[in-house]
Design a protein around this nucleic acid. Structure first.
Lengths: 207, 207
DNA sequence: GGCGCTCTTGACCGAGCGGTCAAAGTCCTA
DNA sequence: TAGGACTTTGACCGCTCGGTCAAGAGCGCC
């Protein structure tokens, strides 16, 4: 079920999709009911099931939208010219750019993974796609197995970035000293991540 | 509301608490209903509200149990004698020991944080306690502010560990090459985390 | 005007939810 | 043996949920 499979590429159907995506971003899956989606789109609940086979199908499509957008951004960075360090920093920047442009992404993925959400399989497939893409981008630069292998570093770096967006708001401005998701806060985190990448790269060199 | 505030430290009340904790571990908050808890404890639903003022209070107590156990483990490590590197490694080990001994911990915390769960405030308070504890353990070893400050490193290191437990099962044995939560998989991750810590420490030294 | 098609509505369904409560069961004590 | 306190049950309440469906509304076309 994708947007193209709709009865018609109807404005109402797309408004429902937009509404679902907005609700997802604001309150996660638990804020997303058929009634809420309809209300947000300015129509009655019945229409949700006229245009979409089920609420799950609608949510799955909303999630897929996020994933495709992210994959596209990463794809560009992974095919950057240059040496390994440059490519790694480019991919980190691409990841952070995407996360900053849609703050909800991190929370949505983590909610599914940690809460064993109804769409875990979709998320898992997407994550495997991302890892495959990153693997292509960093081919041969790291040991094939063991604690310094690419899967470990991928998990590590994505954790560094994803968790900032989910945890920093919990700590809040008072504790963090500045708005974690404000311009300065985001720039500081970006600097931190790049610093850690460099620390790891030079330790790998020194091996 | 803690276990000590119950009408009596009754066996049934505690069985309900155990049941809630088990369900939380297996399926997260969405698997946790008053009926499910009662069934798991082998009693009828009415008893849940006889011994606990509400389902939320019961869940809050189950969460608190996890947190207190974790704080105790970390407390010991944070007061370890020795230089900074030794203390950092000790704290990483303590964190991993705890996570390994209760795999559900990571998922439960992340579910609350990412899903804006009903118990977010409880979790947030707990997280601040943990950071305060770690701060005491590493006092003065890092800049007070900026991208190399302790809050950033704390977020980074806990992300490294927590996310392994929530994400690795999603990738699964087939993709990861071995059972991520098996003995060998856990040991490998532990080695990776310690390696990253050392990489960061020597980069800090070289500054 | 009236047919036919798409779009929209609102009433309705069964299920599960957290929570309440009167009644019954159980067990100790006087 | 009777009473009373504690424990347990099951019926019940109001509510929200995803999903269905018959009945219209609007509209273009013959």
């Amino acid at each position: 079920m994708t947007a193209a499979d709709l009865r018609l590429p109807n404005a109402t159907a797309l408004a429902l999709l937009d509404a679902a995506q907005a609700l997802l971003a604001e309150g996660g899956t638990k804020a997303l009911s058929a009634r809420a989606v309809a209300e947000r789109a300015g129509v009655r609940k019945g229409l949700v099931f006229y245009y979409w086979p089920s609420l799950d199908a609608l949510v799955a499509e909303a999630l897929t939208r996020y994933y495709e957008a992210q994959l596209e951004v990463l794809e560009r960075a992974a095919t950057t010219e240059g040496e390994l360090p440059a490519r790694m920093h480019a991919m980190v920047d691409a990841y952070l750019d995407f996360a900053e442009s849609s703050h909800a992404y991190a929370r949505i993925v983590q909610e599914q993974v940690a809460g064993r959400g109804a769409h875990l399989e979709l998320v898992a497939t997407h994550l495997r796609d991302v890892v495959a893409l990153v693997t292509r981008g960093l081919e041969g630069a790291l040991p094939a197995r063991g604690p310094l292998s690419l899967p470990h570093f991928h998990l590590t770096l994505s954790a560094l970035m994803v968790n900032y967006f989910t945890y920093a708001p919990v700590f809040g401005r008072a504790w963090w000293g500045k708005d974690p998701l404000g311009r300065a806060g985001l720039a500081e985190r970006r600097a931190h991540v790049h610093w850690v990448v460099d620390a790891c790269l030079s330790a790998l060199d020194a091996r």
